[in-house]
């Protein structure tokens, strides 16, 4: 299997990437690690006429602290995120979840920015970004935008990113000493989550329970009004629209969501 023909261009800086993408038209795709895009191109589900490779842009793989935030460059690989001492200390949920994406080979190539911009509802990191209240910083032809993770995902593989707009950095508020947990149910280690749950403090986010990653608002509301974790977890499927596929029916996913949220709340509580 090989992708349909396309023109490959390489950008050395963010400015060059944005310029090249604008010149190429609205179907141009940015290529980072390629671990979401290339498989789709090989299946001809995506047929971009041109790729702008941003993988060599040095300014986008930082992981640093500033003003109570942690800034993660969009090109930081899952492996870098998982191994970062700063993230393991300040945002252990993010480091832990990144270490459970795919398999080692995928984590060596796949990037946090790619995972978020691709917006697969079965991906782990979009839900983690929601739970952690991340802000996504983009660069495009009309300048820089800062977008709350909660406003970023609009549908199945769809985000508010405009054509030619590049996700450059993800900013996370430091989590503080709040409990966290990441639960992911798969048949094999390397699989996408059938259902996943990310808990950070009083925020609960779900993987693969709808066309976008989503907050389990009914659970959060129940916890806020003093419900016990088990009681709150029972409401995990409210407001969701889980897909049906060969991995499970909607009812099965709803059951998994309740079970996994219960486990996640228990684990998060034990880590406070």
């Amino acid at each position: 299997m090989i992708p349909a023909p396309f023109t490959y261009r390489r950008a050395a800086t963010v400015d060059e990437a944005v310029t090249l993408a604008a010149r190429g038209g609205e179907d141009v795709k940015f290529l980072a690690g390629g671990h979401s895009l290339l498989p789709l191109m090989k299946l001809r589900l995506v047929v971009p006429p041109e790729l702008v490779d941003i993988g060599g842009i040095g300014e986008l793989s930082h992981i640093s602290e500033a003003d109570g935030h942690v800034r993660v460059g969009a090109l930081a690989t899952h492996d870098q995120v998982a191994g970062s001492a700063l993230l393991r200390r300040e945002l252990p949920l993010l480091a832990h979840a990144a270490g459970r994406v795919g398999d080692p080979q995928v984590r060596h190539r796949g990037t946090i920015g790619g995972s978020l911009a691709h917006a697969d509802p079965a991906a782990d990191l979009p839900a983690v970004a929601l739970a952690l209240g991340a802000t996504l910083v983009t660069r495009g032809p009309s300048g820089t935008r800062e977008i709350a993770a909660g406003d970023f995902f609009t549908g199945l593989f769809e985000t508010v990113l405009e054509p030619g707009e590049l996700l450059a950095e993800i900013r996370f508020p430091k989590a503080g000493p709040s409990g966290w947990s990441f639960q992911k149910f798969t048949k094999r280690g390397i699989d996408w989550a059938i259902v996943g749950v990310a808990v950070a403090g009083d925020r609960v986010a779900l993987v693969n329970m709808g066309p976008t990653p989503l907050r389990a608002r009914a659970v959060e509301d129940a916890l806020a009004s003093g419900a016990a974790p088990d009681e709150a977890a029972a409401r995990a499927a409210e407001g969701t629209s889980a897909p049906e596929d060969l991995n499970g029916s909607r009812a099965y996913r709803e059951h998994l969501a309740r079970v996994l949220v219960g486990r996640a709340l228990g684990e998060a509580r034990s880590r406070r």
Binding site: H35, L38, P39, D79, P104
Partner: peptide
């Protein structure tokens, strides 16, 4: 050919990658 099986694993700059999913 879908980055699942790992038969195509090589080292790229010293780290394992699936070479069917790298240009």
């Amino acid at each position: 050919d879908t980055s699942s099986c790992g038969a195509c694993t090589v080292l790229l700059d010293g780290r394992s990658v699936k070479s069917c999913t790298v240009l």
